[in-house]
């Protein structure tokens, strides 16, 4: 067994896990953060996308022990029911999401993009989402939603929502 400790959505989390435990399974099963989804289990679909030290990664392809001591942001750290991140708000306004299963990963990938590039072109948005599959929408409204979110004042001012949801 291995002790792991990481900062998840601004909160220190600890667990004792066997080496073969993925980051996704410790998030979902040990800490109850079920927002990140298991879609393909091979790193193709992006439903498990989280940020580790600010970089988007597939939580299904990382061992929890590899992430020991690092910072993790999951969808649960991206605003909640009463306070939406501008990306989430734009998705809601445009009905960008249908079944919802891909949404957590897509919101995280969009955040990773906007953090580095607050004014992406449509092509840059498409490239940023290449690792996030959606079977319902055809992506059009998702791409429009991200573009719209980038026009929101909170993004253009370089402010993003923190773990507690307060800007």
């Amino acid at each position: 067994m291995h002790q792991v400790e990481m900062m998840v959505n601004g909160q220190v989390r600890r667990a004792e896990v066997p080496a073969e435990t993925t980051l996704l399974s410790v998030l979902r099963e040990t800490w109850g953060l079920t927002g990140s989804k298991l879609g393909c289990d091979v790193g193709d679909c992006g439903a498990c996308t989280v940020l580790v030290d600010g970089l988007s990664v597939n939580a299904c392809l990382l061992l929890a022990v590899q992430v020991d001591g690092q910072e993790v942001l999951t969808i649960e750290g991206m605003g909640g029911f009463d306070y939406l991140h501008p990306i989430q708000a734009a998705f809601e306004r445009l009905s960008s999401i249908q079944c919802g299963f891909c949404a957590p990963g897509i919101v995280i990938s969009a955040k990773a993009l906007i953090d580095k590039n607050p004014h992406p072109t449509e092509q840059e948005i498409r490239e940023a989402l290449a690792g996030n599959l959606c079977r319902c929408t055809g992506y059009t409204k998702i791409i429009e939603g991200i573009a719209e979110a980038c026009r929101a004042p909170a993004i253009t001012d370089g402010i993003s929502v923190t773990e507690s949801g307060h800007v």
């Binding site: 079920t34 649960e76 909640g80 029911f81 989430q88 949404a103 919101v107």
Partner: peptide, 8 residues
Amino acid sequence: IRTHVTGS
């Protein structure tokens, strides 16, 4: 949609 986009 709100629970979808917040992962809840």
